[in-house]
Design a protein around this nucleic acid. Structure first.
Lengths: 338, 338
DNA sequence: ATGAAAGCGCTAACAG
DNA sequence: CTGTTAGCGCTTTCAT
C-alpha cells in the first residue's frame, strides 16, 4: 500500500471550497465563515491532512528552523545551553536543529560556510577551532550569532561573558581565603583557545592584585576540558611535587576531575586545597564537596542569542555587529567554604 | 541592500548551460564533461550559489531531517543519547532536529500526532507521559522509533533494555555484599511510569531470590528523577528512622542525590550504605565514591534507533513493529566496592 | 552529454 | 468572504 498523498487540493474538493479557503483555515486566518471553517476542518480531519512544511517553506522563503552548532552535546555546559536555546526558540515559534562540530576545524568551517543555506533561517554558533580569518571569510549571509569569546571584533553578533573579570574574581576569592599557592588548570597552547587565554589573563591579574607571585609551574596545560583532563592535570601537579593550596580550574569538569584526584590521594577539599571552577554545571551542585564556580547566566545567553538572531532575521542587515555581555556571578560553595 | 537571490537559473545563464546541467554538477552526477563541470563550478563560485534545500525537499518528497523528541536535553542521560543520535544520523546523511517535550503529555501528543509532518522523514521518540492509547491512536504515518519501555506491544518499532533483568541484577549485587535491608528509590504512582514499574519489579524479584523480606517502608516514591528528588527521598528514608544498608536507585541522578544526603549526614558509602544507580551517566564515573550502576549501551541504542528508522523510511511499511533489546551491563564501582 | 518543460504543495496577489 | 492563478527553486521525465 502506497501513500495517497493528500494535499490542500484534496481537502478543498471534499469540502467544496477553494484551496485558498482551506489555506486560510489552516493558517487561522480570520475572515472565514464559521460554517465553512467547520466544513473544512471536517474534511481535514477525514482526510487526515497535514500541511507540507517543505512547500510552505519554499513559498515563504523561510523555514522557521535555526541551527545550533556546538562542539558536543554530551559536554554538560553545551547540553544545558542547548536546553535553553531549544526552549527559547520554541517560544518564538522556531525549531532548532543541532550540529555537532566535535570542535573540528573542518566541520566548523562547513557550518560557517553555510552548508545548510536556505534550510535554516539563522545560526547560533559556538566555534572552538575556527580562526578569526575563517569567520571573516564567511560568504554565506545567513544571520548568525556567535557564542563565546572566539572572535572578538569579529564580523557577527556575539554573546560573551567577561572571562577576564570572572576569572579574576574567582582567583581573588581563593586569595581572600588566605591561599598563597594558587594553581590554574586549563591553559592551552592552541592559538584558537581564546577562552583559555582570557581566563588565564584574569588569573594572572588577580595574582598580581593580591600581591602573589606568578609561578609557571602552577599553571597546567590541558588537551581538552573534560574531567579526565582535570584529573590528569591535578595528578601532574602533585607528581611534580607542587603543593598548591588552591586551584582555579577553567571549567567545572576540569575541577571535578581535579577534585577526584585530590580525594583519591587523601587530600581534603577545601582543607588542604580549595577549588574553584567555571560554568556552574549541575554536577558541581551535587558533588561532595559542592563546587565553587563562576556561574554565567545560561538562560540569558540563550535568550539573548535567540533574540539577536530573530532581530537579524527580521532586519536582514548584517551590518553593525553587536556584542552583548551576559552577567555572571561567583557562586561560593563548599569547595572553598568547607 | 536586499538579497540578489541566486538560483540554478542564474548559474546556468552565467555558465552558458542549462539548468539541468548545473543541477547535475551540484549533485555530483557522473555524465558531465570535465570542461563544462569546471565552467559550472566557476559560475557557482562566482555567484556564491547555494542550493535551496527547501525546494529540493519539496521536489523529492523528503528532507533528510529526523526529529529526536526527548523530555529535556539537560538531563544527562538524554544529552548523552542525543549526542549519539546526532552523530549516528550524520553518518547516514541525516540531520537531527530536537523537540523537548518536558515530559508533558500535551507536548508529547503533539509530537505523536505528527505536527512536523512532511518536514521530518522520521521520528525517534522517547515518551514519558503518553499512554498506550495515545500512541495507538496516532494517525500520522511518519516512520517512528520509540525509545524506552513506555509502550511494549505498541504500534511502532521500539528499542528497549531489559529493565526487570537489569534491576534484578543490580539488586542481587547489593544482596551479594551481604546487605539485608535494601531500599529502592524511584518508585512512581503515575500509571504512565512504565520504567519505574519494571525496575521495581526487578528489585522485588531479586529480594525474593535472595530470600530477603520485602519491606514497603524501604520503597520510596519520587516525583521526578532528578538529583533533588534522590536527595529528598534519602532524607525521607532516614528521617523515618529507616536504616537501609544498601539502596538501589532507579537512575543515576537519584543515586547521586541520595549519595549527597548520606554524606551530608555523616554516613559512609559504601561502608554504612552501599549504593547502586541506573544509566551510567558520566557524573557517576567521577563522583566520590564512584557510582555502581547499570550501564545500557547508549551507543547501541542510538545506532539501532537510527538504523531501524532508516529502514522504515526506505521500506515505508509501518506493518510489523519490531522490538530490539539492547545490551546493558552492571558496572561495579566504589559505591558498592569501596 | 545536455536541454526543455512539467510540476512538487503551498501562499500571495488580485479579482470578484 | 472566497475563488483563480502564478510562481517559490529544484529535480525529473522525455527529447535530442
Amino acid at each position: 500500500m502506497d501513500k495517497p498523498r493528500v494535499g490542500l487540493k484534496d481537502v478543498a474538493r471534499l469540502a467544496g471550497v477553494s484551496v485558498k479557503t482551506v489555506s486560510n483555515v489552516v493558517n487561522g486566518y480570520v475572515h472565514v465563515t464559521p460554517a465553512t471553517r467547520t466544513r473544512v476542518q471536517a474534511a481535514i480531519q477525514e482526510l487526515n491532512y497535514r500541511p507540507n512544511l517543505s512547500a510552505r517553506n519554499l513559498r515563504q522563503g523561510r523555514t522557521g528552523i535555526i541551527a545550533l552548532a556546538v562542539p558536543e552535546l554530551d559536554i554538560p555546559y553545551f547540553a544545558e545551553l542547548a536546553h535553553f536555546v531549544v526552549a527559547c526558540a520554541e517560544e518564538r515559534g522556531l525549531t532548532v536543529l543541532i550540529d555537532q562540530t566535535g570542535a573540528s576545524r573542518e566541520r566548523e568551517q562547513l557550518v560557517a560556510e553555510g552548508f545548510r543555506a536556505h534550510l535554516i533561517d539563522g545560526l547560533i554558533f559556538s566555534p572552538l577551532a575556527l580562526t578569526a580569518e575563517d569567520l571573516a571569510a564567511r560568504m554565506d549571509d545567513t544571520p548568525m550569532v556567535l557564542l563565546g569569546e572566539r572572535v572578538s571584533e569579529g564580523p557577527a553578533d556575539h554573546i560573551v561573558v567577561d572571562n577576564v573579570a570572572a576569572a579574576r574574581e574567582a582567583t581573588l576569592h581563593l586569595a581572600s581565603l588566605g591561599r598563597r599557592r594558587i594553581a590554574a588548570i586549563g591553559a592551552q597552547d592552541d592559538v584558537a583557545a581564546e577562552t583559555s587565554r582570557l581566563r588565564l589573563a584574569g588569573y594572572h591579574r588577580a595574582l598580581e592584585e593580591a600581591g602573589l607571585p606568578a609561578d609557571d609551574r602552577l599553571v597546567v596545560y590541558v588537551e581538552a576540558y573534560h574531567r579526565a583532563d582535570g584529573a590528569r592535570a591535578m595528578a601532574t601537579l602533585l607528581d611534580a611535587g607542587q603543593r598548591p593550596d588552591a586551584v582555579f580550574c577553567f571549567n567545572d569538569p576540569l575541577a571535578l576531575g581535579a577534585l577526584r584526584t585530590l580525594l583519591e590521594r587523601g587530600h581534603t577539599v577545601p582543607g588542604d586545597v580549595a577549588l574553584a571552577g567555571f560554568d556552574d554545571i549541575e554536577d558541581g551542585r551535587y558533588s561532595t564537596p559542592t563546587l565553587t564556580t563562576v556561574s554565567p547566566d545560561k538562560q540569558a545567553i540563550a535568550s539573548q542569542a535567540v533574540d539577536l538572531l530573530v532581530d537579524r532575521m527580521a532586519k536582514g542587515s548584517q551590518a553593525g555587529a553587536r556584542e552583548i555581555y551576559v552577567p555572571y556571578k561567583l557562586v561560593i560553595r563548599e569547595s572553598t567554604n568547607g
